[in-house]
Design a protein around this nucleic acid. Structure first.
Lengths: 317, 317
DNA sequence: CGCGTCGATGAAATTACTTTTCAAGCGTGA
DNA sequence: TCACGCTTGAAAAGTAATTTCATCGACGCG
């Protein structure tokens, strides 16, 4: 169970490196974190998390016992929830809560995001979608673990070869990343076919990088190739919305994407894609910075190469 | 003196009621309070107060003992100082400190609109990217012509068949749209190969919809198939950043995406992609609304179908 | 110049709060 | 239906905050 899972990961980390940074507690990304982790939580923990997220100021004034009473749970559950949210204990969650409350008070309007309904006008749809995606970006940026990002960037920048795994919508994100990396001279390939992906993953070894993208963290077709690459000594990176999912067991570096509530009309795929793309962009820029000497000329070269694919400009007025 | 004061207060409170609200602790007025009360304080208390005022964030991380050590005083002195500053005890001062730190941090970094530079830290990169993409979304939403969108949605919703043309990054956006439309039961196909696209475009006729995605509006490989489809009587839609580009000549409906300044490290492809995706999402939601009767069941069906592709949930603790 | 008083201060005791442990409860799947 | 494992809260254990109290030093007065 938990022990097993934890031990596996720890063992791996110990073997590979010394776990760069467990998880710097989130300052303002609390709401995002609550959403991301909500599925993992038990009922009472969800109650605590939700209470905390909906009224940071109020909760900051409460002691463990107080919050336990207010949520109708026990102190133990409150502490457990705090841990799950990434804090060493309730004390620190409480501090973060106070900070969050202050920020909210200062920032003013929190954000009104009503679900998109079937009978919304298109004007509303546009507004709500834009709003939700903006929120999603903000959440992702706030929750992104820069240490992990740094490590991932370093791995990519120095990789002999990069394989990207993703299925469905995540595959498109993977292709986006691969396209970008190719442009700056890296050898990257996005796999769409799970079988081919596994077949190729066997070739991976130390110095190669395998990157898997899956929102659920449980997509077998994506986990398999990453596992194979991991077993063959490649450095592995996972971009997932569930940092505690199975895929985490085979990832050296985990980049967490945020999750928005999904509604009937707006499948989770939409916000996860937005979130994933931001992460991918960050990776790309990071790598481009680190390989600037070669990246810059490569970028302009690719522009040149495309020029003749465009009709002459005389059409514009 | 202080003792006396405290006793008086306690006595009164006990007698009157359960502590009405002697003094609402200060949130951000801490520095002011320190200055005001400094003369009243003893040397060691001044040291504590000053430390606290100059580094709220750092002190918030410390326990009484820690702060006592850092200021070279004792726990008692720290508590006494807290009292003098208007808090019931150190615990509450600490919360206020955290809040203050958050406020300072929020106010200190108002907006990062600068270009991403080669020597930016990853933290900056993440912040700037998120910021830029958010801006891009806002711009797109504001500039989107809902009338055109409405027309495009109507065309798509009633289409016998939908072909999507896009090259490079825009192709991924096209695939995203096609995937989504397929999910709700429409017949959509995204073309990556320009030759095949043209070949297929010849088949298009009235009742079919051709949709082209190109940021520049001048990408020949994308314009060609759209022109062919247009000539054969299909309804044509263009998603482009240049509504005056050549492609406009062959588009019945034009959806404009916004363009952000592009910097050396951040090619235009990035922001155009974000913008295009928002438009595509709006199209999708619009179509899903109009075909709700068939779309809703189709959506849930596709979820079901994917379920077995995920590993069981037993992995989570 | 010495003595006494009083406030400031920190060590230690006490109390409040937090964290951990553990056993009972409960749902779930075999 | 049973058994297993996860969830949960009660209570023990531990940690941090608060209070108490004795010491120290300064100042004023005899």
């Amino acid at each position: 169970m938990k022990e097993t899972f934890k031990d596996v990961r720890d063992g791996k980390d110990a073997a590979v490196e010394t776990r760069p940074a467990p998880a710097p507690p989130a300052p303002a990304a609390l709401a995002a974190k609550v959403r991301t982790l909500a599925p993992t939580m038990t009922r009472s923990m969800q109650r605590v998390a939700e209470t905390v997220a909906s009224d940071p100021a109020g909760c900051a004034a409460l002691t463990v016992t107080g919050l336990a009473e207010r949520t109708g749970t026990s102190e133990a559950t409150v502490v457990r929830t705090s841990r799950l949210l990434g804090y060493p204990g309730y004390r620190d969650l409480r501090l973060a809560l106070a900070a969050l409350a202050a920020q909210q008070a200062a920032g003013g309007a929190p954000a009104v995001t009503a679900d998109i309904a079937v009978d919304d006008s298109l004007v509303d749809v546009v507004a709500k979608l834009a709003q939700e995606e903006q929120q999603c970006l903000a959440d992702t940026a706030a929750a992104l673990d820069v240490t992990q990002l740094e490590a991932a960037v370093a791995a990519l920048a120095g990789a002999r070869r990069i394989d990207v795994y993703g299925i469905g919508a995540s595959n498109l994100v993977g292709q986006d990343l691969a396209q970008k990396l190719l442009r700056i001279g890296l050898i990257a390939h996005a796999h769409a076919d799970p079988h081919l992906a596994v077949t190729n993953a066997v070739q991976m070894r130390t110095g190669d990088v395998a990157l898997a993208i899956t929102h659920s963290g449980r997509t077998t077709d994506v986990i398999e190739p990453l596992r194979v690459a991991f077993d063959h000594g490649a450095t592995t990176i996972a971009i997932t919305g569930r940092p505690d999912g199975e895929i985490a067991s085979y990832a050296d570096h985990i980049l967490t994407t945020s999750t928005a509530r999904e509604s009937e009309l707006r499948p989770a795929a939409m916000s996860s894609r937005t979130s994933q793309l931001l992460v991918v962009d960050c990776l790309f820029i990071g790598v481009a910075q680190r390989t600037y000497e070669t990246a810059a000329p490569a970028l302009s070269a690719s522009y040149e190469a495309l020029a003749h694919r465009h009709s002459p400009r005389n059409h514009q007025r």
